[in-house]
């Protein structure tokens, strides 16, 4: 992706160790990344931790950024940070989710237990939420989402499909479309 010349100059200054240029990059991408991380992590403090790590890594690894818009590169780092942070904080939950999937347990949702979308999103896995956030919030295509998450396109499609099905089920929207 071609960069606009102004951004190109900012990146060059960043490469030379200019902290003010780096802060311009934070100004440009920070809020969007923080919002995305918060959608995935469901916790403002954890999201801030993830974005702090993202920018610290970006500062250290500027050498690995090619001549490209740093947006997708930063998003990739932020997604890695968010998902791994979520996994570390929710190891037990991740295990039970995995066990549930392996045993084919299907969580039935009674009409009394129907959730609003916020709480339904809480029930997804971090990987599913990352796919949903990138595709539906950042408006990335399925292919772009797959590239950011470093997973095959089919896996991304599958995550999105499963996530949507689960959200419909949890919110009762499934019945409305039946």
């Amino acid at each position: 992706m071609l960069m606009d010349p102004t951004l190109g100059r900012v990146i060059e200054r960043w490469r030379a160790g200019d902290r003010e240029a780096f802060e311009e990059v934070i100004d440009r991408y920070g809020l969007q990344l923080l919002r995305t991380a918060r959608l995935i992590l469901r916790d403002p403090s954890l999201a801030e931790d993830a974005i702090q790590e993202t920018f610290l890594k970006a500062w250290q690894r500027i050498g690995s950024l090619r001549d490209e818009d740093p947006g997708p590169w930063l998003t990739r780092i932020a997604m890695n940070e968010s998902i791994s942070l979520y996994r570390r904080r929710h190891r037990f939950q991740a295990l039970t989710e995995r066990f549930g999937r392996l045993s084919g347990v299907k969580h039935e949702v009674s009409s009394e237990a129907r959730l609003d979308l916020t709480h339904a999103l809480d029930q997804l896995t971090a990987e599913q939420r990352a796919a949903v956030a990138l595709h539906y919030y950042q408006d990335l295509s399925v292919e772009e989402t797959a590239r950011v998450l470093k997973v095959p396109v089919d896996t991304t499609k599958s995550r999105l499909k499963t996530a949507l099905r689960r959200l419909r089920e949890l919110t009762g929207a499934e019945e409305a479309f039946a």
């Binding site: 995305t36 918060r38 999201a47 539906y136």
Partner: peptide, 8 residues
């Protein structure tokens, strides 16, 4: 998602 994100 947009509305939730804009809380930040």
């Amino acid at each position: 998602l947009h509305s939730e994100a804009e809380e930040t």
